[in-house]
Design a protein around this nucleic acid. Structure first.
Lengths: 216, 216
DNA sequence: TAGATTGTTAATCGATTAACAATC
DNA sequence: TAGATTGTTAATCGATTAACAATC
């Protein structure tokens, strides 16, 4: 890898999953090679941008030929760290937690989901997919025993405020955060990806208003 | 409003919901006025950036004083279109659909959720919160009668591929899209906000790998 | 070899930051 | 009036686009 990962700009990082998804689809369709020009057309980017983005990490193409779809897909998987197997837990077995467990494929995601934690005694002891639902009372013991490095937070803000400091203390360093608790402001040296679904609805509202404005 | 909404850069648009959230919190805490300097500190931005962002839409501050928290909050709500009441439907009463309905507050969101559609006859006829679950067979009739303008898609890609063209035909113009179907590539003149939760997990994987790299 | 397409350097564009005059 | 802080213009920085030499 040419660059340190931390030196790559946020704009490039956020495009990497899109590249990965697109290449996966192309591979499934049986496409063997692709030029930056053609990939740009599909993804609505410019060929220059694609070549610049990829060359942050190394020269994966072949001059005069283009890029091998499967090789490039593998390179991006490696860049994203999808070849890792970080132990992960999920907090909150409500609808959102169940939706995440049900729809995300943890296989080849870089993470290995171990268990789901919830306070509701009615769901504790059951399983969601193949994953056991454990009482949040046992969270500390579990962490001491298994040392998870990552957590998905499908709990409300108050729950997160309470549990995150404990989790950080126990060694959890990566958070996919659906709670509205500002982890990244409270802690440094953690990797946080915030998902604010309510913000997306507001952005949609803006875009809808802009569309109407256009058509007046 | 100084600018047309469509002329404002994407970077600014994506910050608007953050401003709104922050101001809402400040208002709840009883803060009456705030300077760009102090708001910048809280939100980890620069004072210049905040003043530039806000002046895309108009001069909401008072020189020598700062900004009125509640007035600015109201202005941003109006810019985001949260004062509107666009009729909205939600497709897919699975865990994700239930999570959305359960966690988002549609009051003051710019949208008015009318009904939830699903194909599963076991849930059709029931209610989630106060919203009725209707058979997808009745979707067309419903649209003819009520003319919803917006939809949240909590259905898989194949379902979206089938239903979106129909919805666009029936007049739906805004989509909060959790399916992996590329609406914006297939249709123009629609407002689309895509949420790719799987991409967030990949981005987290990247950031976790970057963090490890740092600490070696 | 000729054609195609990359990797990379240079030019352009846009967004962020700094500075300061206007003004409350 | 003096102090504070905005709105706005100018400077800087970073990201995107264009160009082209390298090379498969």
């Amino acid at each position: 890898m040419n660059n340190k990962r931390s030196e790559v700009s946020g704009a490039v990082i956020r495009r990497l999953p899109r590249y990965y998804r697109c290449l996966l689809r192309l591979e499934e369709q049986g496409t063997v090679k692709i030029s930056s020009r053609e990939l740009a057309r599909i993804m609505d980017l410019t060929a220059s941008q694609i070549r610049q983005d990829l060359n942050c990490f190394g020269g994966f193409g072949q001059q005069g030929y283009g890029y091998s779809v499967s090789a490039l897909k593998e390179e991006i998987a490696r860049i994203l760290g999808l070849d890792g197997r970080k132990k992960m837990i999920l907090l909150g077995a409500g609808n959102l937690g169940k939706a995440i467990v049900g729809s995300l494929d943890f296989e080849g995601s870089g993470f290995d989901l171990m268990a789901i934690f919830d306070t509701n005694e009615w769901v504790v002891g059951s399983e969601i997919r193949e994953y056991p639902v454990i009482s949040t009372d046992k969270l500390e013991d579990f962490c001491h025993e298994h040392h998870p490095e990552a957590a998905i937070l499908c709990i409300p803000q108050e729950g997160a405020e309470l549990l995150v400091p404990q989790l950080v203390e126990l060694g959890v360093r990566s958070f996919l955060n659906f709670s509205h608790y500002d982890i990244d402001i409270e802690f440094s040296n953690v990797a946080v990806e915030n998902v604010y679904i309510a913000d997306s609805l507001m952005t949609l509202s803006y875009r809808a208003a802009a569309l109407e404005e256009e058509q007046e």
